[in-house]
Design a protein around this nucleic acid. Structure first.
Lengths: 180, 180
DNA sequence: TAACTATATCTTAGCACTGAGAAAGCGTGC
DNA sequence: GCACGCTTTCTCAGTGCTAAGATATAGTTA
């Protein structure tokens, strides 16, 4: 209670700032998990900042670049496939493809076997742009993650895969039970 | 060029879809770096989705929760300190604190020694809310990262720290040189 | 003291994306 | 062959944040 703390503060002569520091005691395994979550987010943000700045030099968002890369490597894909691959909402993929079409990098094509569906495909310009910027892009990433040597990168990749799959599989039922 | 490919396609009888698959050949160490970047982002997104959904049940953003947590553990902080700690823009911290003030969880306080500066501090309500939701929050994180055991989590934390610091230290000069 | 530079917060405009729902088309069961 | 549910894409309003610049205050130098 605030009242209680205010009384204490008056008694001890401390400043009556309401926001004094607290500590929450947690089990060591909980602390390890919390710490992992924090450093995972920070590391991702730090790497992302560089990669994002790199593609921004070419007027692209990370997400847009992801679409170009996917289309380059896999060829024309249905919008829904692209959506699931780069993890955006259905509204998002429409918007993003619109923008790439406006930039002349991607075009939509009808799907002959399903008239609801549409393909997204790189234009020649899009494909040329990707080829042009990819090497420097890869070099930036290689340097940004260079604090780990190749063996460590591979080890970390393996662990992150397990972590990611485990997290994706952790379902809502379990979440709600744990909070019951 | 498109024209060339169209001719090829006509010649071979393939569909004239412009977006056929390509492969970019890269050195193994480059491939390892690219792969790491992808799985890092995916793992972070997968974990984040759960954590974010958890705090959303209490009407909070991940960023808002981060502010509450920081203020709880460290006590009142200058807006600028909070900003650097949770990595948002200067406009962002103003906006976020405004929102938390509107929710009654945080209050602003004048800084006696610098009239430009302002403290953000938890209200009693904010501090009570954090205490109420923190245990379940920690449990969610613990389960979501549970694909790794505690020793693996600690190992990964150590590696991610190195990765993050290395990435943060990789400066723009180097980036630009590599693209020259 | 006055001018300058630096810093802290706030304002404003805008961007990237989400989420809910609409529209169109597909396929299945009757 | 037709109604019904399921997909696929698109629309639109809203959200959470950024970036650039404005304002106010602090410290520093002449």
């Amino acid at each position: 209670m605030s009242f209680r703390r205010k009384l204490d503060d008056m008694a001890t002569g401390r400043e009556p700032l309401p926001g004094t520091a607290h500590a929450l005691t947690v089990a060591p395994e909980t602390a390890a998990a919390l710490k992992l979550w924090v450093v995972l987010s920070r590391a991702q943000a730090a790497v992302s900042a560089h990669v994002s700045a790199d593609v921004a030099r070419h007027g692209l968002t990370l997400t847009e670049f992801g679409i170009l890369e996917a289309l380059y490597h896999r060829g024309a894909m249905l919008l829904g496939e692209v959506q699931r691959r780069i993890l955006v909402s259905s509204g998002g993929i429409t918007f993003l493809v619109d923008r790439l079409v406006a930039k002349g990098l991607v075009e939509r094509q009808a799907c002959p076997s399903d008239r609801r569906a549409r393909y997204a495909a790189l234009t020649d310009e899009g494909s040329a742009l990707l080829e042009q910027i990819f090497p420097a892009h890869a070099a930036v990433i290689e340097r940004v993650v260079g604090a780990l040597d190749q063996a460590e990168q591979e080890e970390m990749t393996a662990m992150l895969k397990r972590l990611g799959h485990g997290a994706a599989a952790a379902d809502i039922t379990a979440t709600e039970l744990s909070n019951a």
